[in-house]
Design a binder for these strands. Structure first.
Lengths: 224, 224
DNA sequence: GCTCGATTTGACCATTTGGTCAGGTTTTTC
DNA sequence: GAAAAACCTGACCAAATGGTCAAATCGAGC
């Protein structure tokens, strides 16, 4: 039955992300935004082209004029998203102060969850499906970046700037904790009554996270 | 268009989880297992009843003899899962040693990710959709449990057994970090080459997580 | 080995879904 | 301002999908 495979399809005006005209630019953007909303809720298979078209304010036929097929839209949305998802980690500066750098990183990721919760969820959805589309990106650029930044963390540990923790798992921890505020928003909201969209809550979350990550749970001598 | 609403449906042999005969018991179990696999990958809308039936080794008609509709299967799977998801937190003992208790909790959650990755993913999928089905459970029993255990953490903090961190965000952090090994398995595997299913990796993850959560990143006086 | 309810099936159906296409309308280009 | 290109639409289609139903088959108790 070929379950969740995502096929390939042709192109009409422009297959890559380079619109030629104003109308194309506007409509492609509208489509991508609508698609993000739908795909992030229902995943690839659960999303309906009709609904994306409706949300984008155009006919399905017209939608398909811009993106030849459902999977083409999906890939375009995902490609758009990946850059922004990865960007924050790139800014981690080896020469900076570990605490400042990591705090800034965590804050950026938290901000991403607040600003683009749907993007975060779409990313999660793609993962849940086994990452059929972005698998190569994970194994390539993402792994490379993680390896590079792991070195930075190890470097800091060697200099005694941070405790020698496992860099990879630290990165996973930061990813997971920051994304959970977007991906598991219903849970967060059911328990706290609010969410990462709220600035006060976001500050509180950042405070709690950094306090925990830097200070740990064990009592420290000198600070009761 | 009534996007992702999950309707209600009748019942055939038994609507609740109490099978009457051996055959019912066996078949219901087979269906639930197959449904877990499919729903966890594709979400509610993306899942196909045909496929669940095929995976369960029976005809679609027969599948629908046991569960009157797609949504009924979905709810049954989710109900099955929720108990197991919540169970570990219940075991957190106020009178125990904080470090031991929390380590045990983290280990249990990690083990859950290893043993029931599909359950973890289905839970995530339901969240991504806005938790339409389990919303009430989140706001009721889950919140109650979290409130209760937050008290335990505060209690520990007052006694100076742990640093006074925000209990809620600590719980979120533990949930997120442990679930990420199941939900984002492709990412984990792309970067580490293995995953939580591997016992050695699981030990390493547990070690790294507890070390980080208890010790924090900041260097401690006395332990270079 | 018969009976009655439980189980299973395949044919069938209405609706939905992704996608095509011929032709019409608008915008750009010269 | 006309030709060409870009844009848009509604009708249409084949396949897929959730679900129904009458009839066939099975199985435990008598």
């Amino acid at each position: 039955m070929e379950a969740g495979r995502i096929p390939d399809a042709g192109t009409e005006p422009e297959s890559d992300g380079a619109p030629r005209t104003r109308i194309q630019e506007k409509n492609r953007a509208r489509i991508l935004e609508a698609a993000l909303g739908t795909f992030s809720r229902f995943g690839y298979r659960g999303a309906r082209v009709d609904q994306i078209a409706e949300d984008a304010g155009m006919s399905k036929s017209n939608l398909l004029y811009y993106f030849g097929s459902k999977s083409e839209i999906y890939k375009a949305v995902l490609a758009d998203l990946l850059d922004r998802w990865l960007a924050p980690l790139r800014t981690l500066d080896p020469d900076g102060d570990p605490r400042k750098e990591l705090t800034a990183y965590i804050e950026q990721k938290l901000q991403f969850s607040a600003d683009y919760p749907q993007a975060s969820r779409l990313f999660a959805n793609e993962m849940l499906q086994g990452a059929p589309v972005i698998r190569d990106v994970l194994a390539g650029p993402l792994k490379a970046l993680v390896d590079e930044k792991s070195q930075v963390l190890r470097h800091w540990a060697e200099r005694g700037r941070i405790r020698p923790v496992d860099p990879t798992h630290l990165i996973f921890l930061i990813w997971a904790t920051t994304q959970t505020y977007a991906d598991f928003a219903p849970q967060i909201e059911a328990i706290t009554g609010t969410g990462v969209h709220d600035e006060a809550f976001r500050r509180q979350a950042l405070q709690a996270l950094t306090d925990l990550i830097f200070g740990g749970l064990l009592p420290r001598p000198g600070s009761p």
